[in-house]
Design a binder for these strands. Structure first.
Lengths: 197, 197
DNA sequence: TTTTGTAAGTAAGTGTTACTTACCAAATCG
DNA sequence: CGATTTGGTAAGTAACACTTACTTACAAAA
């Protein structure tokens, strides 16, 4: 039987919540469908009514969290005047969002990337949108003369995204605390003004 | 029966080769022990004579490739005079090594990080060593006045490592070609001179 | 030369796991 | 009302990672 997904029945919600809770404790592969079901107080079969497979459940949980992430950032960007300030907001807000939402971060940065299916999921569409936003700002920044004209916007994006993601890794993996203000301004300083004395 | 791992019997080599070959085609989890064994022309049981489990096989393959990676980089650093040049060499060589050795990159950047076991493996010890080398150079660079005195060495390291890793992702995941020279000089330009006009 | 120990490899399991099929009961709606 | 859809269950099944018990080969010690 196919579900069109228009409603959001309690079973479905319970499954997603159960899965999210388990993701805090262990990695995706060591979570079993039996555990998810038991924890959600439903039968294993119900998982497959709402989700194509275990990975689909992962992607949908990720997707749900993505809305928060993106909404918060886009609101904040609107308040900034210069393109550099906008990028600084992105760096700060991304770090903050990753820190506030460990399950989201863990899924996005550590769990989904190893399987190609993800890149056809709608969760990945949101990654691309976010990524595109950054590129747009960089390109406008170059046009406006805020950023160096010889700059490759794609490479600057790589540096910014890479720095953000790498900064979160220790936090996600080992549960280390991160001083977001320090790290955000540190990254911005290096990226915009350079590390050279 | 326990193996002390002093010798390197043909069966063990065949298993590792078989696994490496399969890793080119698919992701870790969709490779089965049956396939590994069949491909290596040994029985499934033999895998467990030489490797604790499937993940241990993954870590050991990673570890083997790590030697190449590290040896190449350390030789090259020795030839550079300034600390900034050393860091530039690291950026270039890392990109090059990742590009030359996709299985290694795929395992290190996409497969091992999601499970905590990895961080107790000896492969992770090598990551730390590599990471430590970068930090040392940065600290010396600050002392020598090449890099800004107010710089947080840990954050610069995050930016460099993050940029390198992120730059490789597209390549690893989608098999895109990467112009290493362009990307390496692009990253260096941004990191050392800044993106600001 | 026989004994002994052990490394290399095999064959045939076993318990779990993700996922399927068939069914039920209660809403929903033409 | 009767038909269909929705939310949910129970009992499977094939495939998987991993184990156990065994065989052969062979080198060093007795």
């Amino acid at each position: 039987m196919k579900h069109k997904g228009k409603t959001n029945p309690p079973g479905r919600i319970k499954i997603m919540r159960s899965f999210s809770a388990l993701m805090v404790q262990k990695d995706f592969h060591s979570i079993t469908t039996a555990q998810i079901a038991k924890n959600a107080q439903v039968t294993e079969g119900l998982i497959y009514k709402y989700f194509k497979d275990k990975k689909d459940l992962l992607y949908q949980v990720l997707n749900e969290h993505f809305f928060e992430f993106q909404a918060k950032i886009e609101n904040r960007i609107a308040n900034e005047k210069t393109y550099i300030e906008q990028l600084e907001v992105i760096i700060f807000s991304s770090l903050e969002s990753y820190a506030d939402n460990r399950i989201f971060s863990k899924i996005l940065l550590l769990e989904v990337r190893n399987s190609l299916e993800f890149f056809n999921s709608c969760a990945y569409e949101m990654v691309r949108k976010y990524s595109r936003t950054i590129l747009d700002i960089i390109e406008k920044g170059v046009e406006a003369g805020e950023l160096r004209p010889d700059l490759d916007p794609y490479i600057l994006r790589k540096v910014i995204l890479g720095a953000i993601e790498h900064a979160c890794l220790g936090e996600i993996i080992f549960g280390k605390e991160l001083d977001i203000d320090d790290v955000a301004t540190g990254i911005s300083e290096i990226v915009f003004n350079g590390a050279k004395a």
